[in-house]
Design a protein around this nucleic acid. Structure first.
Lengths: 354, 354
DNA sequence: GCTAGTCTCTGTATCGATACAGACTGGATC
DNA sequence: GATCCAGTCTGTATCGATACAGAGACTAGC
């Protein structure tokens, strides 16, 4: 059994408080006594104040949670998520705070419990799927949090860092529309919960529950509405999960239709790369010159020559953690909108004259 | 102030123990009383048992630490580290355990404190630099850990997952030697602590403190010794940190020497890619046909056509976490050696006849 | 010589829960 | 009717520290 602080106190013949001070408040005791205490501790093999007990008494833990409302192992597969994590890590480093990654079990009841049990001082919520239940639990616990997805019902005091999803998506679509494309497919993650992969019929964009997906689809639609292409004329392809292979599978059949789209707008680079994969998988003579756009500008996008919308991933993570660890006094400053930019590469081109 | 468990107990008129049981041991009380308690808790806004207090009393935390003996933000930059993390995450997910990423301040005293203060049940130690001090602290705390770097002084009971670094490195060098290369440079991370970037003189490989770097250099040397090329004839290039740009910088001057190497063996893919960058940066007419090998086989290696030694990254992380969370009864089973394989691509070729 | 003030150190209360032994009921068993 | 037992619930001890008020000892200042 490891000795406790009490054991060290007894060995030296001082009070528990004094030993505690030797570790946490060196100015509260003479240097000489402090050395005697630390020596005794070394001799006894005292491992230093128990972190859990300390946290309990102090009322804070010294670590922040990062919540992915999806499988944790997925987070490391998604290049954008990894850059986000790097940003959070950089901020955590600056503040001497640890990062707790909490895996969420598939069942919501279990997932709630996981969030309830996380020993953290606050959360960075990286939005992947529906997060409302998670925010409920966090609020219930009275913990601060920073969200990265804009929500309509967000309280004015809720901290947020993100981009104008709709405007950013619109810029990509405007580029495509400007190139003359009118038969267009939109491909996105979790368009409808539990909908199968592939094209689906959607009366309107309002039906999409996932806020980020919804906003991006809205942005795409905005640009096409402007050139006279209505929502009903757009093909929407659902992908269950933001996965390259899933996107390839879901989009494979798209180009064999009677009047195939000439451009595909993807809700993320990962999906866009999947679409490119599906095209590359076709025999060379049957490879239509489809324009493809992505979203995020992950490192792989540049290598693939993918036209995409850049958003600062690492910055997003860094600012999320900073907002959490060092909250601005001004509530308005807790709402950060990051810039985006359309990056045109060679995956997009004018609509071919047929 | 959030209500405590006591407050709920008072509200319902039962003992604290019973409320505790309502959450943690539902079989210990009648379903009907449990419902009454949970209802009251909801009404009072009780957030559920305080995770810290619970951990203190129970004696365990429900999370494992992942220790990178380098900057935490660096870990997310290194593709191999990310795959390792993904593996740890997958195992953590299976066990319902969280992962704590602990940033280590540059000063060792502070770094020790960070490890002392981490609220975890054990550590996966991902070896980047010298880790001995970290293992000391972990042992002192009496926590279990799994290491991924073989150390000479490892106790028989210490859990480990890794590869035969020396043999794996040797396989890459044997390939290069077999292609006829005799003037060769080895480039590695942290060959000597605080040594400047670039070629350095090293009496022997034993001087290298970092165990992984040392073993890989040894493996390289082994293969060349076999074809009559001694240690003194090998150029060793130091890179401070496993970084692509740093490797490019450190190796840039290498090819302007009177008798430049015809092959470069890198201690990691990241470094090898840096060497390729340095070559690509030269004007086309002055680009010698250098053979380059890497180590790890990260995703980027395939795209770059890099010949390398594959080691299973995700598997390594997964097994590290499994060994920690579900220790084998048999001590020998706690020592896992993973397979490696030489992957020959087009970054290596026969030595050019000049 | 007396009041203040500074350094050190102590003692008690507290953080918020869980473990475990034991008490109380009511029904089954013989 | 005594005994046993399973099902519920309570009470006390405990997990391992930190906060905070305050007690002594000493040095200064007047």
């Amino acid at each position: 059994m490891k000795p406790t602080l009490q054991a060290v106190a007894d060995a030296v013949g001082v009070s528990r408080s004094t030993v505690s001070n030797a570790y946490s408040r060196p100015d509260q005791l003479s240097a000489i006594l402090r050395e005697r205490i630390l020596d005794a501790a070394r001799q006894l093999g005292y491992p230093g104040p128990n972190p859990t007990a300390r946290s309990l008494r102090r009322g804070f833990v010294g670590s922040i949670g990062v919540l992915f409302t999806s499988q944790l192992s997925y987070a490391f597969t998604d290049p954008f998520a990894v850059r986000f994590l790097a940003g959070v890590g950089a901020a955590a480093e600056r503040h001497g705070t640890s990062m707790l990654l909490v895996p969420l079990p598939p069942a919501v009841t279990d997932a709630r419990r996981a969030v309830e049990n996380a020993a953290v001082d606050g959360f960075c919520v990286y939005c992947v799927a529906d997060e409302e239940w998670a925010l409920d639990v966090i609020r219930q616990r009275g913990l601060p949090f920073v969200s990265t997805a804009a929500r309509d019902d967000a309280g004015a005091d809720e901290r947020f860092v993100g981009i104008d999803e709709r405007a950013a998506a619109r810029s990509a679509a405007a580029h495509i529309a400007g190139l003359g494309h009118r038969r267009v497919a939109l491909i996105a993650d979790s368009v409808l919960p539990d909908a199968p992969a592939g094209p689906l019929t959607l009366a309107g964009v309002d039906q999409v529950p996932h806020p980020t997906t919804r906003d991006r689809l809205r942005g795409f639609a905005d640009a096409f509405a402007e050139v006279g292409v209505g929502w009903a004329e757009l093909t929407v392809v659902n992908v269950p999960g933001n996965s390259r292979t899933a996107a390839a599978a879901a989009s494979a059949g798209l180009f064999d239709q009677p009047a195939p789209p000439t451009a595909v707008l993807a809700g993320s680079d990962v999906l866009a790369l999947g679409v490119l994969d599906a095209l590359a998988a076709r025999p060379a003579h049957d490879r239509p010159p489809i324009s493809v756009t992505g979203f995020d500008d992950v490192p792989e996008a540049a290598a693939a020559g993918l036209t995409t919308v850049r958003q600062p991933a690492e910055e997003k993570g860094r600012i999320a953690a900073e907002l959490l660890l060092d909250p601005p006094a001004d509530a308005a400053a807790g709402h950060v909108l990051l810039p985006t930019a359309l990056v045109v590469r060679n995956s997009t081109g004018p609509v071919p004259r047929s």
